[in-house]
Design a protein around this nucleic acid. Structure first.
Lengths: 140, 140
DNA sequence: CTCGTAATGCAAAAGATTCCCATCTCTCTT
DNA sequence: AAGAGAGATGGGAATCTTTTGCATTACGAG
């Protein structure tokens, strides 16, 4: 039950928070903006303010329930954190996002941070490219 | 001479463009926001509009003269492109940015993109951590 | 069930970036 | 060197994303 996750995060179990978490769990695509969440809620008949969506997403991020990404679209996108770290490949043509995880790269990053006298806290690796899906508008 | 670079990019050699390019070449730190550039120009007595700074930086980016990064500060930062690709380590406490380049990671990225059916076009790797400089406010 | 605190919604604010358009300036041509 | 035309600039308005202030409402401990 979602309620436990919210409670564990030290937050009151309110309707907006439950609905937003439910939505993120059911959401395809997995990477959505605050605006997306807001609109999806409206479509489901939930009258939740945009400001609340932003606040809740930020709180969920602080609690480790969701991860925020800054792709190159001018707005942040959020995805439910399923406990397993991964990085992203984004298609510059159709916006499709795929996930991957590579032990070699993860390892090297830690080493590099250490070599530079940094204690690694987080990292963001995004590969931009053209996917070759038949549905991608960039195919000629 | 800067003028050639601007001309090569197919842009008219105008005062704002020359001044901005000069500033980027001389600038320390190397990673500056549009607002930073605007203010630095003002301090030098150059009355160049903020809109122009944005336009010129975007054109320079399109021309491959500068690179735009989306760190986690809510605004883009730009740096002069010196022809050699590199990635970044950003201190989450003091904002300090260091650069690095790792052949192993570069290599793996290409492979991963290919494995996922993508043609890699670009990528962005940012490590966030705490630097251990004596000047960093995060030291306790 | 009642109360106090924390959460919400709305509207206004703030920050970043883009757009509009009248004016100015390169650059190419004579 | 002067003129014309395309392109560039500046400044403010507009847009977009995200945050904030505040009055109202909803959890949840007792």
């Amino acid at each position: 039950m979602d309620n436990q996750e919210i409670r564990k995060a030290g937050l009151k179990v309110t309707l907006p928070r439950v609905k937003i978490l439910e939505l993120l769990e059911a959401s395809v695509p997995r990477h959505v903006s605050a605006e997306d969440v807001y609109k999806m809620l409206l479509e489901k008949g939930e009258e939740i303010g945009l400001a609340t969506v932003y606040r809740v997403l930020t709180q969920f991020e602080a609690a480790g329930l969701v991860t925020r990404h800054n792709f190159e679209e001018g707005h942040a996108v959020f995805e439910l954190d399923r406990g397993e770290h991964h990085d992203h490949i984004v298609c510059v043509l159709c916006g499709k996002v795929e996930e991957f995880m590579d032990a070699t790269i993860e390892e090297r990053q830690k080493e590099i941070a250490a070599e530079h006298g940094f204690e690694m806290e987080d990292h963001s690796l995004i590969i931009y490219g053209r996917c070759n899906k038949p549905s991608c508008p960039g195919r000629e």
